[in-house]
């Protein structure tokens, strides 16, 4: 899953301009940005979490497919399997647009369709689910863009808002399409690129999450709750990546790390289903690549792979993402 983001990048060294559309971040940090509180990953996007900007009167479209699956998960901090659910797979199709509104300000809009199910007959015989998840709207602003003889430093604040667009049930884990709550991501991202093409980005995100509605009006969260409303824990997300532009800026490759830490929440109880109130921690590593057929615009392809290697109340999920981008002026 991924989020995505869009991007475009100005490669303005030596008057060469290059735009990159939808780059990865979405793909890169996706999970995290997304949330996943437990078992599922929302595609939510986060946003603009890339160090690239679309110019004014330019837009970029992304269509991407993600396949994620896991057959182990952390129950609290204990890694386990569960034949009641066996291997759970989540497939996502995401459509997204990035639009250069004015110079230095980009607007993002995205909507994912998710299908989640056990990939084989399981001990649980539980039905999977599919449907539209959460619509995302985001803004990213280039606050600093300072060039020196060796490279360029940029700083980007961004904000993304997402909210469910269908009546999917968040309290149906591990198959729930999403967390069923509105979410606001406040992000600050610092980017430094050497003129040679090597770059690094670090980012910090405060993920505010609201409440979700279950279809039962009692649940246990370290005590009784007589309500259908569940408090979905907010979280911090940290990201870091190193990458490089290659082949005359047609290709770039990155490796990345991302971590998510819920601020509150309860643990999944022994052999019990997760619920949206769970405290979710995840550490993930991934690789990302983007190829642009023509640096001036038109079609591009993005691909990424990532895996969660450590977690708490989280799936040990591995995801593969593939997408095409199209960039144009308007």
């Amino acid at each position: 899953m991924f989020t995505n983001t869009i991007i475009d990048q100005k490669h303005n060294t030596r008057n060469q301009r290059m735009k990159i559309c939808f780059t990865d971040l979405g793909l890169r940090f996706s999970l995290f940005s997304t949330i996943f509180v437990c078992f599922f990953v929302q595609i939510q996007a986060q946003t603009p979490n890339d160090a690239n900007m679309m110019d004014k009167r330019e837009a970029c479209l992304l269509l991407a497919y993600t396949h994620g699956s896991f057959d182990q998960y952390w129950e609290g901090s204990k890694l386990r399997e569960n034949q009641t659910i066996a291997t759970v797979q989540r497939q996502t199709i995401l459509g997204m647009a990035a639009i250069g509104v004015i110079d230095k300000l980009n607007l993002y809009v995205g909507l994912p369709y998710v299908k989640a199910e056990s990939s084989e007959v399981t001990g649980g015989h539980l039905a999977g689910v599919s449907g539209l998840q959460d619509v995302l709207v985001g803004l990213k602003y280039q606050l600093i863009n300072a060039q020196s003889s060796t490279g360029t430093f940029s700083l980007f604040p961004s904000i993304t808002f997402s909210t469910p667009v269908s009546n999917y049930l968040s309290d149906y884990q591990p198959y729930s399409l999403g967390l069923g709550t509105s979410e606001i991501n406040w992000r600050l991202m610092a980017h430094y690129k050497l003129n040679k093409g090597i770059y690094t980005t670090i980012g910090a995100v405060h993920v505010w999450r609201g409440y979700t509605e279950a279809e039962r009006d009692y649940y246990y969260n370290n005590g009784s709750f007589y309500t259908a409303t569940m408090d979905v824990p907010s979280a911090w997300n940290f990201e870091a990546l190193v990458g490089s532009w290659l082949f005359k800026n047609k290709l770039r490759l990155e490796v990345n790390y991302s971590s998510l830490r819920s601020i509150s929440g309860d643990d999944i109880r022994a052999y019990n289903a997760p619920q949206p109130t769970n405290k979710v921690h995840m550490d993930r590593v991934g690789a990302f690549g983007q190829y642009y057929f023509n640096p001036e615009g038109g079609f591009g392809i993005v691909a990424s792979y990532n895996t969660i290697f450590q977690g708490r109340n989280a799936p040990k999920m591995t995801s593969l993402n593939l997408g095409i981008t199209y960039q144009f002026g308007y």
Binding site: P164, E213, Y226
Partner: peptide, 27 residues
């Protein structure tokens, strides 16, 4: 409608920082 309501709440929280609800643990 509820989604819209949640969205409005969320935007409200964005502006005023906190919107904690009191969830009942007894009657």
């Amino acid at each position: 409608k509820r989604n819209l309501f949640n969205a409005i709440i969320a935007i409200g929280c964005l502006m005023f920082s906190s919107c904690e609800q009191d969830l009942p643990s007894y009657l």
